[in-house]
Every structure is written in structure tokens, then in C-alpha cells.
Design a protein around this nucleic acid. Structure first.
Length: 289
DNA sequence: CACTTGACCTGTCCGC
DNA sequence: TGCGGACAGGTCAAGT
């Protein structure tokens, strides 16, 4: 699923497409996908106007005029896709074909606005969830209380970054990067890409990483995530943005899913192995233990 | 407390 | 073509 750049891409799309629209109906497949009681949905969601679309870490926040927020985590394969017969979407646009293909077997929640445009929450693997929560309570849910700082905030310095890792000195740098309580929004793609950029082996223990290496990793992580946002995120077969379009960051990836190909920096063949329980890609020349 | 592993699900790909 | 197993961009509850 989506990491920070993909979720941010979806957020920007939805911000353009659904603010001001009024909810009319909602249906969901199971309580796991959307656990709120019917009377709460009726009272706080239906007839509500979308007032804002925000993001924190990998979580999307759709604010409603009722003082409630639709909180969504896409996990591995979730999508939030807006569909309308809209003048902005001509024939041949991905959204035009989605008009005819959605809902499908991966659709978990289907929301219809009063103008009959629709927002689909699709999730092949059913790990994701959507929940209606009072806006003021959102910062108090467990995930939000524990999640670390946003890495792309202008004031987030290399020193702040390094300090977040001190608690996790005895684990690998990759496991710590993936830990959402250390820094928000990093997942498997951008962990591998930023570690390659900073020339750090993913299995290095955190307490062996130097100040200079943390500075490099801080720079690389921000650069790679900003580039990915500019490219609309990374797409595998399940990721699309709010308009149904794929992102192109994978065309720029240096190591992720490039095992057997040459390192763009030194030409050594990239290898793949398991680290922190995840498929991990490195240049064995640039990144050594 | 910190760290690792398994569980949650469906679909796809790869080797026999 | 079928089948088993590994694997997939994430997080949480268990275990040590």
C-alpha cells in the first residue's frame, strides 16, 4: 500500500475533487471495513458536507461539516477512488473506465454524493479500514498518539531525526525506519531508496550509525519522498490515485524492485534479501555491513 | 521495556 | 493446467 507519498497524492486529488460535496448514501461490505453503527452514520455522515481532506502519516482524514471525520488507513492494497461523469474527465481518462468497472469485488465502502458522484474505498486484502470519529477525538486514537513526526515538515531537522532513533539503538536501521513511532510515513519502498541514497546497509544496528550518516539519511529520505510526491507516488498493480491514475516514481527508483539490474551509482548488480521481515534491496558495493 | 514473529486477507507468480 | 509455497508499498497482538 501506499506510503506517505502515495497517501499524499491521494489526499491532493481528493482535496480537489470532493470538498463541498454532500454525502447522500453509504454502503459497506462488512463491519471490519466500516464499523460505525447505522444510526451514527445517519446522524453524522449523511447530508454532511466535506470541508477538508488532510493527511497524518499514512492516514487520510476527510473532515465533515458535522464535526466528524472519516479516518481511513489504506494499509497494503487500499484505494480511495472518486468517480463521476465530470467535465474534467474526458473519454480515455482512467476515471472514465472506472465509471463502468466500479464497484468491483474489492469494494469495501461505496459513498454516493447528492450529485450522484461516488467515492469508493477498495481494498483487495481487507487490511485497511475506514472509521467515522469526532474530529476533535482524532488526535487521541492510539495510532495518532504514538506516531512520530512528519518527516517533510520544514522544521524537522537532521538532529530531530537522529534523536528519534536513540530509543531503538539495538535494532536494525531498516526496522527503525519502518517503525511509525520513530518517524511517520516511511514504508518499504522509501526505506530502501533512502538507505541506498545514504549508502547505509539496512542491517546496520542503529547504535552504529554516525551523526553524518543520520544527516545523509535525513536528506535522502526527504528528497526521495518529495520526488515521489512530484511523480504522483509509486504504482504496483494495486495503487492508483483518487482519479484512478498510476504514479511514476518506480521509473526513478534506484534499488527497489531492481534486483539483478545495475546500481545507477557504481554499476554493481543489485541484490535482494530479507531484512526486518521485509523484502530488501541494496547495492552490495555501496552499502556494506 | 525493546525486539521479533505471526496474524490479518486475497491475488499472483514461479517451480514442480 | 493444477497445486504448493512464497511473496506483496502495513500494523497490531502476541511471544521471548
Amino acid at each position: 500500500m501506499p506510503e506517505l507519498p502515495e497517501v499524499e497524492t491521494v489526499r491532493r486529488g481528493l482535496h480537489e475533487l470532493i470538498i463541498g460535496r454532500v454525502m447522500k448514501t453509504v454502503t459497506s461490505d462488512t463491519a471490519k471495513s466500516f464499523p460505525n453503527a447505522a444510526q451514527d452514520v445517519e446522524a453524522f455522515m449523511l447530508q454532511a458536507t466535506v470541508t477538508d481532506v488532510r493527511r497524518r502519516a499514512k492516514v487520510l482524514l476527510i473532515d465533515l461539516s458535522t464535526g466528524y471525520t472519516l479516518v481511513t488507513h489504506l494499509k497494503m492494497t487500499g484505494q480511495l477512488v472518486f468517480v463521476a461523469r465530470d467535465v474534467r474527465f474526458g473519454a480515455g481518462h482512467p476515471n472514465d473506465s472506472l465509471v463502468h468497472s466500479l464497484p468491483d469485488k474489492s469494494t469495501r465502502v461505496e459513498m454516493t454524493f447528492v450529485d450522484d458522484s461516488k467515492l469508493f474505498f477498495n481494498d483487495q486484502r481487507k487490511f485497511g479500514w475506514m472509521k467515522l470519529i469526532p474530529t476533535l477525538e482524532v488526535p487521541n486514537i492510539d495510532f495518532m498518539r504514538r506516531v512520530g513526526p512528519e518527516p517533510l515538515e520544514a522544521h524537522f531537522t537532521a538532529a530531530d531525526f537522529a534523536a528519534r532513533f536513540t530509543r531503538r539503538g539495538k535494532t536494525s536501521i531498516k526496522a527503525a525506519l519502518l517503525d511509525q513511532t520513530v518517524v511517520a510515513g516511511v514504508g518499504n519502498i522509501y526505506a530502501d531508496e533512502s538507505l541506498w541514497g545514504a549508502r547505509i546497509h539496512p542491517k546496520r544496528l542503529v547504535n552504529t550509525i554516525t551523526t553524518k550518516e543520520f544527516e545523509d539519511l535525513h536528506t535522502e529520505l526527504r528528497e526521495v519522498m518529495n520526488l515521489a510526491i512530484a511523480k504522483g507516488g509509486s504504482s504496483n498493480h494495486t495503487y492508483i490515485n483518487a482519479e484512478g491514475k498510476k504514479g511514476s516514481y518506480m521509473d526513478f527508483a534506484r534499488v527497489f524492485r531492481r534486483e539483478g539490474l545495475e546500481c545507477p551509482r557504481c554499476g554493481t548488480i543489485i541484490i535482494k534479501f530479507k531484512a526486518a521481515g521485509r523484502g530488501t534491496h541494496i547495492c552490495p558495493h555501496c552499502q556494506v555491513l
